[in-house]
Every structure is written in C-alpha cells, then in structure tokens.
Simulated scan of single mutants.
Amino acid sequence: MTLTLITHTRAGAKRLQLGRAGQACAALFGLGVIAGAGFGGYELAVKLHPNGVVSERTVESWQQELDAQRRAVDTTRSESEQQINALAARVARLQAHIARLDAVGERVTELVGLEGKEFEFTAEPAMGGPEGEPLANAPGASPLEFIDQLDAMNSQLETRGRQLAVLESLLLDKHMGTEKLISGHPVNSGYISSYFGYRSDPFHGNTTWHKGIDFVAPEGTDVMATAAGVVVFAGVKDGYGNVVEVGHGDGLVTRYGHNSKLVVKVGELVRKGQVIAKVGSTGRSTAPHVHYEVLRDGLFLNPAKYLGDKS
C-alpha cells in the first residue's frame, strides 16, 4: 500500500510504502476516527435533547402548530360553506323568478299570436362567442361581489316580472273581452245546496258563515271556469281539498273546491266554460259537490250576483 503525503515545503509530495502490518494499523486508525466522530455526535445530541434525539418540548410545539393549522382549515371550510349556501339561496330565488317569467312570457306570446318559435320560453336561448376569462381572473370574482351581482339580477327580474304582468293584463282585456266577466254556474247539472252567508254547519250544527255557494253534482262531473283568466293555484288547501283558483284581473279570483281531480296547472290560461276539474268530495265535505267562491282583493263576495247566466 502506498500513501502519498503532500506538504507545503519545497520537497513536494512524499510517498510511503506500507506493508501488511502498516495497512492494518492504518485501517484500524480510520475506523477509530469514524467511531469517535459518531460517538461525539451522539453525545452532542444527548446534551441538546436529554430525553432523546427530539425533545418533548419540540414535539409539543409541532403539535400546537398542527392544531392551529387544523383550526384554520376548519374555519376556512365553514366560511366557504356559508358562502356556498348564500349563493345557492340566491340562485334558487333567481330560478323561481325565471320560472314565473317563463309562464307569463308564454301567455303573452299566446295572446299576441306570435307564430313559429320567435319566443320559445321552454328552450334555452342560443348563445356563443370566444372563450372568456376564467372566473378567478374575472372582475367581481370574490363570493361577496358575486352575491351582490346576483341580488342586482334578482331586482331586475322582479321589475321585468311586474312589467310583463301589466302587459299581460292589458292583453287579457283586449283579447278576452266579455269572457273575463264572471257569470254562470261552475257545473251544468245539479242544484244549489248551500248559499253564501250564515248557515248551520253540516258537521257540528253550529251557526257559521259560509264563504261561497255549494253546487251538488255527481262525482266526476265537469267543473268549469266561470270566466276567462289564469290559474293562480291548483293543489290542496286545508278544508277545501283539491282546489283550483283562477285570477281574472282587477283583483278578482274564483275558487272551486272539493274536486276529485284537477285538470289544469298553475300559469295555464283558461277560457270561460273550460273544464278545470272534476266534482268530488275531498277536504271538509259530506258528499260530492263544488264549493264555489268569488273574491276581490282577498275579500269574499256573494257569488249569487254572478249566477244569472249559465252560458
């Protein structure tokens, strides 16, 4: 084995020839240096961390940092969920307004007599254009600014809805004419069993106020609208059972209760004499009949003054 020694003297490098005994000593010396260095490092680590390589205080500090990060993540998640719920509520309100506008728009289109598919409210409108900026880069991309924009859109939709309702009323006046006038009976057969006003209640016999007129007819008999208008309610109401309400403008509404079946839906335009339901005995009823009411701005009127003409 040859060792080369490099010195800073003029003699330069020197070479030493080691025999087998010298090589063994050199190897043992190298191992001793490595072992000494390792033992010294271990002693230093023990002095710095007497309870181990990582002290309990260090572990505790790390745990506290992890707990703080978990709390921050939970807080961020909760705030995000609240913002998402707020956005969902705004979107639901917009969807409801859009549905109402669609219904009114279809009726106005029908009244105006537009042909083809100039205004097809049940189909998505055609849209296009170059690809826009990602949402993150767009102005108003923060959730709060987005909610403000949704609120502004909701206000605009409400305004447009009121305008369409006025237009619809004007068109109904123009196209319906005398059909908007309430007259006649809601059924073509049968008889009146109870009039508007005070009566003896059929269930407990006490004197009560009857808000409409009852027309007895066989179950399944056609129930007809007594004037043209728009269906404003079609469903179940307490006491009335299956009921249909038709709005006729100027705050006038006719109501038809206890039906066995409804054949119209909310938003539908109905003509005078059109079948809207079938006679039944649903709700608070003793036998098949139609409970018929007339209201103006929520106040009950005596339907008798509208019964003169069955046609």
Rank of each mutant, 00 (worst) to 15 (best):
L16F: 15
A277W: 02
L101W: 03
V230H: 00
G273F: 06
V108I: 15
L171C: 06
K47F: 08
V53M: 07
A13T: 11
G105W: 00
D74N: 09
S142H: 06
K117M: 10
N259R: 05
L172Y: 03
V232D: 12
D201N: 15
V166C: 01
L172I: 07
E145T: 12
V166G: 05
P303Q: 06
Q156T: 14
V33K: 00
F215T: 03
T178F: 00
S193P: 04
G197L: 08
I84H: 07
R100A: 12
T282I: 00
S285G: 04
E168K: 04
H291G: 06
A27G: 11
G280M: 01
T221A: 12
A152P: 00
V33M: 10
K310E: 09
Q149I: 08
M127T: 15
V223S: 04
R107C: 01
L172S: 04
L3N: 00
T208V: 15
P125C: 05
V236H: 08
I182F: 06
R90V: 04
Q17L: 13
F203L: 09
G249I: 01
L301E: 10
T109N: 14
D201S: 11
A21K: 07
D67T: 13
T226G: 02
E245G: 05
P134K: 06
L269D: 01
G12E: 04
V91D: 10
S194I: 03
R71N: 11
I98F: 07
G113H: 11
R160P: 00
L150H: 02
A96E: 14
V108Y: 02
A68G: 11
V253H: 01
A68M: 06
Y292C: 02
I84M: 13
V91W: 00
A68R: 12
K174A: 14
V53T: 09
A99M: 06
L299W: 00
V266Q: 15
L167G: 02
C25L: 11
L181G: 05
P288A: 07
V263Y: 04
G298P: 09
F29M: 13
V294R: 00
G116S: 07
R100H: 08
L167V: 07
Y240C: 07
L87C: 03
N188T: 14
K117D: 15
I182N: 02
I213A: 01
G128K: 04
E219W: 01
A68L: 10
D173S: 13
F196K: 06
G41Y: 02
G30D: 13
D151R: 12
W209A: 10
L87M: 12
A123Y: 01
L171P: 02
Q64S: 14
E79L: 15
N259V: 04
V275P: 01
E168A: 13
G241D: 06
G251T: 07
E124W: 05
G241N: 07
D297Q: 11
A136M: 08
I147M: 05
L31G: 12
V223C: 04
L295N: 11
S311F: 05
G251A: 07
A138L: 08
A92F: 00
Q17Y: 06
M176Y: 04
E65A: 14
L31S: 13
L16Y: 12
K261M: 11
H49I: 02
R57I: 10
L48A: 15
L164T: 05
N302T: 13
L5I: 15
N302G: 08
K47H: 12
A234K: 00
S260A: 15
